[in-house]
Computed example of a mutant assay.
Amino acid sequence: MSPNIQTWQQALPHGITLSCRACGDKGRPVLMFLHGFPEAAFVWDELLVHFARPENGGYRCVAPNLRGYERSSAPAEVKDYRAKFLVQDIVALIDAECDGQPLAALVAHDWGGAVAWNVANQHPDRMRQLVIINSPHPAPFLKAMQSDPAQQAASAYMSFLVQPHAAAQLSANGFAQLLGFLRGDDDQLSGAHSLAAKAAPWLTPEVEERYKFVWSQGLDGGLNYYRASPLRPVTATEDLISDMVLPAEILRIDVPTLVLWAQDDIALRPCLTEGLDQHVPDLTLVPIDNATHWVVHEQPARVISEISRFLKHPGQ
Rank of each mutant, 00 (worst) to 15 (best):
N224S: 15
R232I: 00
R183A: 11
S171V: 01
G174V: 04
E249R: 12
R227F: 02
I241T: 06
E208I: 00
S229R: 06
A199K: 13
L219G: 11
I253Q: 08
L195A: 07
T237G: 07
T237N: 10
G218H: 08
L272T: 09
G221Q: 12
A267K: 04
A192R: 15
P233C: 03
G184T: 03
A199I: 06
S171A: 15
S216I: 01
S229P: 12
P256E: 06
N224M: 12
L178I: 11
P205S: 07
V259M: 12
L219D: 06
S242Q: 08
L219P: 09
G174M: 01
R183N: 06
E249G: 03
D277Y: 00
D265Q: 09
A228K: 04
Q278E: 02
C271Y: 05
L195G: 06
S229F: 13
V245E: 08
Q278A: 15
Q188P: 02
D265R: 09
L182I: 06
R227V: 01
L246T: 12
G174E: 14
A248I: 00
R269Q: 13
P233M: 04
Q263G: 03
Y225N: 11
A262E: 05
L178V: 05
R269S: 14
L231H: 00
C271A: 13
G218Y: 07
V214E: 09
T257A: 06
E274S: 13
P230D: 01
F181E: 07
G222K: 13
D277M: 01
G275S: 01
K198H: 09
D243W: 04
A176C: 12
D277K: 02
A248S: 07
K198E: 07
L231E: 02
L223W: 08
W202L: 02
L276I: 09
L179W: 01
F213C: 05
D264C: 06
L260S: 00
G174P: 05
T235N: 11
D239V: 03
L231K: 03
L276V: 08
K198A: 07
L189T: 05
L170W: 14
E209H: 14
G191N: 14
Y226K: 00
L223S: 11
D265E: 12
E208V: 00
W215N: 11
S229M: 08
Q188K: 15
I266F: 13
I266D: 06
A192W: 05
S242P: 06
S190V: 12
E274P: 01
G180K: 03
R227S: 08
A228M: 03
Q177S: 15
E208H: 00
S216V: 02
I253W: 07
Q263N: 13
L189C: 11
L223Q: 04
W202M: 05
L219I: 02
R269L: 15
P256S: 15
D265N: 03
S229L: 10
L258C: 09
D243P: 02
A199T: 11
